[in-house]
Amino acid sequence: MKSIITAMVFTVILISCNSSDKTKNTIQESSITETAKDSSSNDVKKQLKAIDTDEALIATALMAAPAESRSRCKVIGYNMAGEFVTLREGDNQFIVLADNPNQDGFNAACYHKDLEPFMARGRALREEGKTGQEIFAIREAEMKSGQIKITPGSTLHIYYGAQTVYDPESSKVEGAQLRYVVYLPWATSESTGLPNTPMAPNHPWIMNPGTHRAHIMISPLPEEIE
């Protein structure tokens, strides 16, 4: 009798173990399947493309502008044919400068339209072959004489990175990030209370103090890549 009872108990334990193993295997298989699905989904999501059309130049350049203003920004810059043109008309306060496809890396900018005379003067002087120092000196003299001006507080948004591929779904350039410039002509550390060098990452500081090009630099930390 005891041997019969022992056999029955052993059978119940064996069935229970088999059932537990099947459940565990099912959970593991389900987990693997979900992981595969997530991996596949991420691969589909990140179909990166080269920035090699005028449409791509416009889409990626607009990432420099505030999201709520992108639909009405004017976009200027070099097209794929190497001509400096108006890539898209706009009617709000922003002008967006597209990345130059003939230069390494990615660099687009967005600024208030009142800064355009200052920016255009810099572009014209570069076309003449002037060096960075010469452009600085010429615009400094023209600012002092009133030929060109910068409204204090005018902001430049810069969207930049080392790569030139983007996600066509979001228009984000791979690895690109933002930094900001707030122009305060002739400002100094003493007049603003800002340091002349950043005290720590992500901290504002004043660059070119005491000159026509004095500006607050704000460089947000790059987003963590998941």
Rank of each mutant, 00 (worst) to 15 (best):
90 G>F: 05
90 G>D: 02
90 G>Y: 09
91 D>W: 12
91 D>G: 11
93 Q>N: 09
93 Q>Y: 15
93 Q>T: 05
94 F>D: 08
96 V>L: 08
96 V>K: 06
98 A>V: 00
101 P>M: 06
101 P>K: 14
102 N>L: 14
103 Q>R: 07
105 G>E: 07
106 F>V: 00
106 F>M: 02
107 N>P: 02
108 A>G: 03
108 A>W: 02
109 A>M: 12
109 A>Q: 14
111 Y>H: 13
112 H>S: 04
112 H>F: 13
112 H>P: 01
113 K>Q: 11
114 D>H: 10
115 L>V: 12
115 L>I: 15
115 L>T: 13
119 M>E: 13
120 A>V: 00
121 R>F: 10
121 R>K: 08
121 R>T: 01
122 G>R: 09
122 G>T: 01
123 R>S: 10
124 A>T: 13
126 R>S: 14
126 R>P: 09
128 E>G: 02
129 G>A: 00
129 G>P: 03
129 G>F: 04
130 K>A: 13
130 K>R: 11
131 T>D: 14
131 T>R: 06
132 G>E: 00
133 Q>A: 12
133 Q>L: 15
134 E>Y: 00
136 F>Y: 06
136 F>M: 15
137 A>P: 08
138 I>E: 01
138 I>F: 00
139 R>I: 15
139 R>D: 10
139 R>M: 15
140 E>D: 06
141 A>F: 14
141 A>V: 11
142 E>G: 00
142 E>P: 01
143 M>L: 12
143 M>G: 10
143 M>Q: 07
143 M>T: 12
144 K>D: 00
145 S>M: 05
145 S>I: 13
146 G>T: 03
147 Q>H: 09
147 Q>L: 12
147 Q>K: 14
149 K>H: 11
149 K>C: 05
149 K>S: 11
151 T>C: 06
151 T>G: 06
151 T>W: 04
153 G>H: 05
154 S>M: 13
155 T>F: 01
155 T>A: 13
156 L>F: 07
156 L>K: 10
156 L>G: 10
157 H>V: 02
157 H>C: 02
157 H>F: 08
158 I>Y: 05
158 I>S: 08
158 I>V: 07
159 Y>Q: 08
159 Y>A: 11
160 Y>L: 15
160 Y>D: 10
160 Y>S: 09
160 Y>Q: 04
161 G>Q: 02
161 G>N: 07
162 A>P: 05
163 Q>K: 09
164 T>G: 00
164 T>D: 11
165 V>R: 09
166 Y>H: 11
166 Y>P: 00
167 D>F: 06
168 P>V: 03
168 P>C: 04
169 E>C: 06
169 E>H: 06
170 S>V: 10
172 K>P: 03
173 V>A: 00
174 E>R: 09
175 G>V: 00
176 A>R: 01
177 Q>L: 07
178 L>A: 08
178 L>E: 05
178 L>Y: 09
179 R>P: 01
183 Y>D: 09
184 L>K: 00
184 L>T: 00
185 P>Y: 01
185 P>M: 05
186 W>F: 04
190 E>M: 12
190 E>D: 15
191 S>L: 06
191 S>A: 07
191 S>G: 09
192 T>I: 15
192 T>E: 02
192 T>Q: 01
193 G>Q: 13
